[in-house]
Amino acid sequence: MMFGLAALAIVVAAIMVLYRGIKGPRVYDRLLAINSMGTKTVILIALIGYMYERPHFLDIALVYALINFIGTIAFLKYRETGRLD
């Protein structure tokens, strides 16, 4: 119950951030929104793991945190240098 309410609050926060991600106006605003949504996803995965009483989902959360960071950095490298290789 407790975890469900917390997850619901985070989903509401994700919707608000997603609105910013779709509205923009710049690509950086979108990127900020999506990065923040990614970290919310990490939390949400952990909470869902506890809702199902299977905390082993945490491995996924850990990997997810890493991937989210790498995606953001890849994007910024492209924006900075204009290329990826």
Partner: peptide, 13 residues
């Protein structure tokens, strides 16, 4: 592309 990233996040959940 950025918004598609968000799509994947949601899909994973």
């Amino acid at each position: 592309t950025v918004v598609l990233g968000a799509y994947s996040l949601v899909m994973a959940i």
